[in-house]
Each structure stands twice: as C-alpha cells, then as structure tokens.
Design a protein around this nucleic acid. Structure first.
Length: 550
RNA sequence: UGGGGCGUCGCCAAGUGGUAAGGCAGCGGGUUUUGAUCCCGCCAUUCGUAGGUUCGAAUCCUUCCGCCCCAGCCA
C-alpha cells in the first residue's frame, strides 16, 4: 500500500465520505460500486475509478460491488466480462461475493416501470427516432410534447405489457418518462426508459425483448444495492437530475447521492472505448493487450505492476478539473517500483563484436555479479566471460564528444562486473561501417580486485558471445504523435513507428532464472513477453540525463 | 447563443478570510564499477481578468474572459 492508500487521501470525495460518517448518515457503513459496461477492455482511466471506489470503501471498512452494467446487448459481450474481472483482480481489488449485473434486476426494473406508468409518470411513445429528435427541440429551443404523452394509463400498461411480451418490432415503441419537454436540461425532456431490442442478452438470453436504458437502470441498481456514494465522471453531471427524478418517483427507500469527478486524461494516448476499439478493430495495434495500449491488459503485458498503477492513481488525485497527465508521471511510478525490486541483468540490443586479443582465445572464466546493487536478498548470478563479446553499438564512437564516458579508439572503459579494456583497432566493412573492435584487457583489473590503477572513461554493459542467448527485444514509443489525439484526425495522428524490434543478445542467467522483469543495466526495465517466446518488452527506459557534448 | 461544470507553477494538486503545501518535469551540485538509483539545493510577491468588501482575499461579492460536457431508443 502506498502512503495515500493507507491514509486515504484528502480529495473532495473522501472528505465528503468522512463528513457523512462523522455526521452519522451511514449507519451501515460505506458502500460503493465499480460499474463497467462489458463492451471493451478496461483502461487506466478505469483504474482511476477502481482505485477510487474500492479505495474509499476499504479505507472506511466498507464494501464495493463489481456490477456489470449490461443493459445493451447490442454492444456487450461475455468475453469482456472475464477480461474485466481479471483486470480488477490483478489491480489488487476484491469484490468478495458482491458481483452483480444490472440484468439481475430486470424483473424489479420492469415492476418499477409499471408503477411509474400507473402513477402517470411514464408513457408508451410511438414516435420513431427521427421524430423524437425533432420533438426534443434543441439546446436553445424547448421541445414539444409527444402526441402520445397523454395516452391513458390503462393503454400504456397494456402496450408496455405487449412490448414485454415481444409483440412489437424493434423501434415500434419506447417507454418514456413524463417529465418536462421544455426543460433546459435535455436529459429531462421525457427520456427513454425502455426500448425494444429483440436481441439475445449474454445473461438473460431471449427472456427480454425490451431493455432498460442506463439512466433508468443505474440509479435503481445503486439504490437496491445500498450504494452510499455513487461515483461517476463529469459527463454524467447533468444526468443527476434524472437520477434523482427516477428514485424520487418510485417506491424505493434508499437514494444514493451521485458525485462526479473528472476522468483521467493522459498525454499521447486515447482513453475512449470507441477509439480504443478502433485501434484494435482497424489493426493499428495487435489487440487489447498490445503493450502500447493504455489498457490494463496492455500495461500488464508491457511490464507495469499493479503497485505502480495504484501509485499513479494516488498521485494524480481526484478533482473536478479537466486534466491531461504527462506520461512522465506514469513512467516515474513504474521506475520507482521496479528500481527496488527488479533484478539487474545485461542485454545488448544492437550488438557490436569485440575480440579481446590478449585473452586466451579458447579459454574463459566465470565471473559473478549481484542481481541487485542494493538488495542483497536477491542473491547473485554467474557471468561467463571470454575473448569474444558483444557490446552495445551505441557505446562506441570513433569521434567522442567532450566528456564521453564510453569506448573510443585508444581509450579504456570498464566492462561491468569484469575487466577494463582498451580499444586498439577498429574493423570496418567496404562501406566504412564499424563491424568489430579489437581490444586488449587489463588482467589485473578484474572487478572487485582491481590493482591496475587505471581510471577508465566509464562503465559499459556487455554479453559473452558464446553463452549469450539471442532474443527479440521490443522497444515501444508513444502510440500517438500528438499529446491530445482527437477522433477526427485520429488515423493521421497515430505514430506508425511506435514499436522497434531488436535482435539482441542477453546473458544466460536472465533466461535461466524464473524471473519475468529485469532491469537491463544502462538500458531500461524489461519484461518477458507473456505470449511470444524469447521476447522481451521494454516497460520503460532508464531515466537519461546525458546530453552529448555537455 | 439554453443548461451543467471547471479555471492556483510546464503537468498534476493542497489551500475554504490571516498573508501560496507537496509530487512529476526542469535546472545546479555531491555520491556512484548502471550518464541509473540515492543525497542536497533552486524552481508561483502570486492564484484566468477587472473592480469591490475587509485591518487583511487564491479564499466573500460583482464583471468580463477562457476551456470542457449535453440535442443516442450508448454508457
């Protein structure tokens, strides 16, 4: 748990909850809910909501429901249900036996609708969608009453029963609340409560030919579950009067307050399910769990930890201000987590062959290195060394800038955990590209027992050619070219170079250990891909403050 | 232009009448066999604007400006 998870934070929602407790309004404790619609995968914006809902309740010894908001079988699919459950669990939250579905309440929802009709608060309307739009008015003009608005109660009851019995085609009728067609709040202009959809539902099958809408369903489910704080995002703010209207007009003895907070915005990515769906469906990414996706599944495959994501959610806070968080903060959180627990290893992404000319050509030795420079408990590993090695191409240059701390002709550098070497000769191909280096090593400079007295330019990582294992290493960049991609220019804003595959080589102990996450020294944090063999995904690079020439 | 929200450092965010927390980023320095980590220091006379109330305002009142959301039988 992070500090904020322990103390509970000071945001306006937690302040409100504490006040409710202090003033004795919650005799049965705090009850919240996370209500995803199973029409896609969860993303980091949902993580914010999950951390908030589960966090607020847990801090007060309360309970949280995981409730699937499954009122629209046209868009929903059971395969998303399992993915969502897995993601919530992986993030570290437990709903216990409080797993529910809006569809669990379909019978009660139906009965309440009949009550509304009897009370003259709802009516069956035959306007088609276009007509209804025309009757609704505009933002600045009031709407007009539906010709069916004064249909007698008995007739409404009969028609609604026949809708339920499946007598009518999709779209023939809807059940509407009878509120106010002139309301400045468009949500109150006789909103639809039920629509006919002769579609099989993932849980209720063909039992219902009619389905309740979100506005009608959500508030009632909240009330029936005794949700003490119904937390949602800002765009539902002007639905609140409708939320309240429904609960005020049915016979239910509990009325949760709806409290809104701003959704998470993250630079260089998108957070709407519609756009995420497009990325997947149009093949811009390999799937919902593509490591470049801001989905929980994508972040997981990328190597993010639940702890880092929770820490991120704690750090961004909860307010009503629109926001767009910099990637730097997310990266800071995962680096901070991995720094202390990821074992170190060495991998070369772009190998440059090095031959130690004064080292026995057929010999070799085994050096040792700790898995972590500060965490002794992590133990150590063996590191094969020989005359034939690979270093990072990037760690050599023929013309070093001022202050260069890597290898260049005539200069010395320490091979991490091993010896100091000097570059004696550079081999090039016909085009003048450097293809290999000839170096000599200082026999008395072995790591830990260095008596050479030589101060090398710096330290670089390396992998023994004979024992190193070839692997694919994937580096990811931001998915979009602009910090705030929009739906209209979406396709043009996608970064088509967001993944770079390297054919690299990694020290044998890394693959031999059972670990998944490593810091490849001087490069970054990586995780073994959960699907592709011998493939590492870069979770995040190491912080790099090197400015050439400086 | 109807309704609903929001405006405190590049990005987040405390603060709710008593004289601008903190984090991320950035910058400078120290330690370092990872140009990492770690450690030090710097980083808003000012709170969208203009007035007003007050001994005193980011906090109260008024004006204006800017941004976001709403016209699905989506959620």
């Amino acid at each position: 748990m992070t500090d904020q998870e322990k103390t509970g934070g000071t945001d306006f929602i937690r302040a409100r909850v504490r006040r409710d407790i202090d003033e004795g309004r919650l005799p049965h404790g705090v009850v919240t809910r996370f209500p995803p619609e199973p029409n896609g995968y969860l993303h980091i914006g949902h993580a914010k909501s999950i951390c908030l809902n589960f966090g607020v309740a847990a801090e007060q010894g309360g309970a949280t429901y995981l409730r699937f908001d499954d009122t629209n079988p046209l868009k929903e699919d059971d395969r998303y249900v399992e993915a969502i459950k897995q993601d919530v669990r992986w993030l570290g939250f437990d709903w216990g036996d409080r797993l529910t579905h809006a569809s669990d309440y379909f019978p009660q929802l139906y009965a309440f609708a009949q009550d509304l009709i009897r009370a003259g608060k709802a009516y069956v309307c035959s306007l088609d969608q276009e007509q209804m739009r025309a009757y609704r008015g505009t933002l600045t003009e009031p709407g007009r009453n539906s010709p069916d608005r004064n249909r007698p109660v008995a007739e409404n009851l009969d028609l609604f029963a026949r809708m339920r019995a499946g007598e009518f085609a999709d779209g023939a009728y809807v059940l509407r609340a009878r509120i106010d067609m002139a309301s400045p709040n468009i949500n109150l202009r006789d909103p639809v409560l039920y629509r006919i959809r002769k579609v099989a539902h993932q849980r209720t099958g063909d039992e219902w030919p009619i389905y309740p809408t979100y506005d009608y369903t959500h508030c009632i489910c909240d009330a029936l579950e005794g949700i003490t704080h119904s937390l949602c995002t800002l765009e539902f703010e002007d639905h609140r009067p409708l939320y309240d209207w429904v609960l005020d007009n049915i016979n239910v003895n509990f009325h949760p307050p709806q409290i809104e907070f701003s959704r998470l915005g993250l630079e260089y990515t998108v957070m709407s399910k519609r756009l995420l769906h497009r990325l997947v469906d149009d093949g811009h990414v390999a799937g919902w769990d593509d490591p470049r996706m801001p989905t929980i599944a994508g972040l997981r495959r990328r190597g993010y930890t639940p702890e880092a994501i929770r820490e991120f959610c704690a750090r961004i806070g909860v307010t009503k201000q629109d926001n767009r968080i910099e990637m730097d903060l997310l990266e800071f959180c995962i680096r901070a987590d991995l720094e202390s627990r990821a074992p170190r290893g060495m991998a070369v992404l772009d190998p440059l062959k090095v031959t130690i000319t004064n080292y026995p050509a057929h010999g070799g030795e085994t050096l040792s290195a700790a898995w972590h420079p500060k965490v002794a408990d992590l133990g150590g590993r063996e590191l094969p060394f020989s005359a034939s090695l690979y270093i990072e191409r990037d760690d050599f240059t023929e013309s070093p800038p001022k202050g260069y701390k890597r290898l260049s002709p005539g200069e010395t550098v320490r091979l991490r955990y091993a010896y100091i070497i000097r570059c004696d000769a550079v081999q090039k191909d016909a085009q003048g590209n450097v293809v290999a280096l000839e170096c000599s090593y200082l026999p008395d400079s072995r790591s830990g027992e260095d008596t050479s007295g030589v101060k090398p330019k710096g330290v670089i990582h390396w992998v023994d050619a004979g024992s190193g294992v070839p692997v694919t290493i994937r580096n990811f960049e931001r998915l979009f070219l602009v910090p705030d991609p929009d739906g209209d220019n979406f396709t043009r804003q996608i970064n088509t170079a967001s993944v770079a595959e390297h054919r690299g080589i990694v020290e044998p102990a890394v693959l031999a250990s059972g670990e998944a996450r490593f810091q490849f020294e001087r490069v970054g944090y990586f995780v073994k891909d959960s699907v592709l063999a011998e493939t590492f995904n870069r979770t995040v690079s190491l912080r790099d403050t090197y400015t050439p020439g400086a």
